[in-house]
């Protein structure tokens, strides 16, 4: 009897709040995690504000941040001997120096602008030198542009731990800033040790990004057959095989011949595609690229 009354009370309480659970069978317990979770979510939403973005906290804002130790460890982590002053100079951007001067703080350095320029030259020259041993100029230029792109250099920069030790007003630093800092670090390394050492560094960190990539992933002529015709004029495409021509899975095999010699084969869903692919195959062989 008492139990029934309690149940009735519960029902009444629920219906007072404006909702009636007609289909409700049993409630085993109050869910005590609901309110705290909603509160926490509310707090977090207010923290984010209207922009909807969570601003990352810079590591340097933490109490135990030790910039000297971080900069020292950066060089040691890479296994390179840096001149500490040069490395600090490489990490300090002009914008940061300007800001400090505006705030009336004395800064000895005048930023890493010249180091950026120097580092860029070193990276660019070395990559071109290394690639030109294997590839023709067109491909060298394409791969060079791919490797020295801001996105690629900042990718390298972030993963060797530059993001938190760059001295710049913006946080998180922009892609171009990280890429520039990486260039400056390369220049600082060159001045600290030797050019040879520095080139090994570029080889290990920048050139190594080609691992798992094929040349055709980075560079591909837009119209391969026309391009091939430009290199080698006495070529002739021939349809070698075809299958399922009247279906959606049609497949054609085209061979490119020169003087009755088969130079390369290509496949494709149409004859034109197959012809272009055969041309790519020939280009691959002519340029000796993998």
């Amino acid at each position: 009897m008492a139990l029934q009354r309690q149940g009735l009370n519960l029902l009444r309480r629920i219906s007072i709040h404006g909702t009636t659970f007609t289909n409700r069978t049993d409630v085993r317990s109050y869910k005590r995690w609901v309110a705290p979770t909603l509160k926490e979510l509310n707090i977090r939403t207010k923290k984010i504000g209207d922009t909807g973005e969570v601003k990352p906290t810079p590591r340097s804002s933490f109490l135990e941040w030790n910039y000297d130790a971080e900069v020292f460890a950066f060089g040691k982590r890479l296994g390179e001997e840096f001149n500490q002053d040069l490395l600090r100079k490489a990490l300090m951007h002009k914008s940061y120096v300007n800001l400090q001067e505006l705030q009336g703080n004395a800064v000895q350095s005048d930023g890493n602008t010249d180091l950026i320029k120097k580092g860029e030259d070193i990276i660019s020259k070395y990559i071109q030198l290394e690639l030109s041993k294997k590839y023709p100029d067109v491909i060298v230029q394409a791969i060079h542009n791919y490797l020295t792109d801001d996105n690629m250099l900042s990718h390298v920069g972030v993963h060797i731990g530059l993001k938190d030790i760059i001295l710049t007003p913006e946080y998180p630093p922009e892609t171009a800033t990280i890429a520039n800092t990486f260039k400056a670090v390369v220049a600082a390394l060159e001045e600290s040790s030797s050019l040879e050492n520095c080139e090994k560094f570029v080889k290990d960190f920048v050139l190594a990004q080609l691992n798992g990539k094929e040349v055709f992933d980075i560079w591909e002529p837009e119209q391969p057959y026309k391009y091939l015709k430009g290199i080698k004029s006495d070529i002739e495409p021939r349809l070698c095989n075809q299958s399922a021509a009247k279906t959606i899975l049609a497949n054609y095999q085209v061979g490119i011949y020169s003087n009755k010699q088969l130079l390369g084969l290509g496949w494709g869903e149409s004859v034109d595609v197959a012809k272009d692919m055969a041309a790519l195959n020939v280009i691959q062989k002519i340029y000796n690229i993998k």
Binding site: F216, W267, M277, L280
Partner: peptide, 13 residues
């Protein structure tokens, strides 16, 4: 694109 047509030819009927 070479890899793509290689796949295409591999699974051709």
């Amino acid at each position: 694109s070479l890899k793509r047509v290689q796949q295409w030819a591999t699974f051709a009927r």
